[in-house]
Write a protein that binds this DNA or RNA. Structure first.
Lengths: 228, 228
DNA sequence: CGGCTTATTGACATACGTCAACTATTGTGG
DNA sequence: CCACAATAGTTGACGTATGTCAATAAGCCG
């Protein structure tokens, strides 16, 4: 890892508060890989060997039932740390991970992470916060899946990106539609129809650029209230 | 809290490893409430005032979109600690909590928990493990919702209770069917039909007692493989 | 036992998935 | 930069899964 990459890692909220000494020994075994979109980092069912940090790009965590069917559980972005639960509990990955953009990924050997967290209280606290935020992410998603229809889920997703108290906004989809469809728990075909349904609510799209012309109407339609 | 209750709390895996001193000061502000089934502990949107531990009984975490629609995100049982993420991040509850049986619940003031975790490394580590396990619970649920049909979800739920490498088993439903339906992301009517569908796979029910006569067939039908 | 709640069943409506054809977009080599 | 192929997205027709509403049956509790 070069100095810029190391510096980026040091300032990651998970690692920024821990002691200098433990951090250096934690990073010693770590390395960074640049990989094109579509690279598989690990597969569901494998034993965890690394903790991962997205330095650049975007990663999808994918769930499989048999080899055919596959879904997206969540996307992780720049500066996100993922798969800590499997690493901490030393239990097999429940999902696979694949880059969805050209990405630069830091890999930290799991035993080093466990050693570091055993030694450093600040790291443990940061991990608690990280995991807490992740729990809330998934909680929202479960509510989303159980309480909303497909067009409502799409609308809520767009509102989340727009982070919108405004009346109008323009957002860029951070992934291709096929993957977005799976993240939202629907087929690509149904995602198309969901976009069509939202047109009457002032949502227009040109490629990956989506314009929200009437956010209040969209919020109303999606029953969007910051807690769901 | 009487001595037996305190002892039960001390041996809870979240609290058993922390230092005696910090634990005592943590428990000092805590108290225990006995409540009948159907009691509401807190509501979605409120600011977190307590961390909760189920000593006896069972609690449902409920998500709401508007006041009409409500779903069950997860159940928590004897010895489970819940709603730690909201407490740690000091962010509003994303769900409401309601007892689904007569229950005895320990309530720990949130600021005391945050103080304790700041002071005690072992507690922070135990919290990391607790949150890791919770993340994996929800991950499984998201995969369940996205990859399986309603009858498959019911089958997988029954297999989880039976924890079944066996060929046959008898299990008790720990909640009434209406709530189970909402936990599984379906209506009570559809849950009835899911039970009907599973009859041909050797699942018979008498009240809350469910008999699984052909677990291998059920596993096959649900694509059940311990990771999903 | 009688009244209340909860669960089941049937009829029907709607949402969503599947398949196939078509169109648009993206990427690549000449 | 174009031509083409490959990939991704859209649309329509149709089937299945699930929700809704209403009626009935079963369980639960005083």
């Amino acid at each position: 890892m070069n100095d810029a990459d190391l510096e980026r890692l040091r300032t990651n909220s998970l690692f920024s508060t821990m002691s200098q000494a433990v951090r250096e020994s934690l990073f010693e075994g770590a390395f960074e890989l640049d990989m094109p979109a579509g690279s598989t980092l690990f597969k569901q069912g494998e034993d965890p060997r690394f903790l991962y940090v997205v330095q650049v790009g975007r990663v999808a965590l994918l769930g499989h039932s048999d080899d055919k069917v596959e879904t997206v559980v969540e996307f992780f972005d720049k500066d996100d740390v993922f798969i800590m639960p499997a690493v901490m509990l030393e239990l097999p990955y429940l999902m696979s991970a694949r880059t969805v953009e050209d990405s630069s990924i830091v890999m930290i050997p799991s035993h080093r992470f466990r050693e570091a967290i055993d030694r450093d209280h600040a790291l443990a606290l940061a991990a608690v916060r990280e995991l807490s935020a992740h729990w809330r992410l998934l909680t929202r998603q479960v509510k989303d899946l159980k309480l909303r229809t497909a067009p409502q889920r799409l609308g809520a997703y767009l509102l989340n990106i727009a982070d919108a108290a405004a009346d109008e906004a323009t957002v860029e989809l951070p992934e291709q539609r096929g993957l977005l469809a799976r993240r939202l728990g629907m087929t690509p075909e149904n995602l198309s129809r969901a976009f069509a349904r939202l047109r009457e609510l002032g949502v227009s799209s040109k490629g990956r650029t989506i314009s929200l012309h009437d956010i209040p109407a969209l919020r109303e339609f999606c029953v969007y209230d910051d807690l769901i």
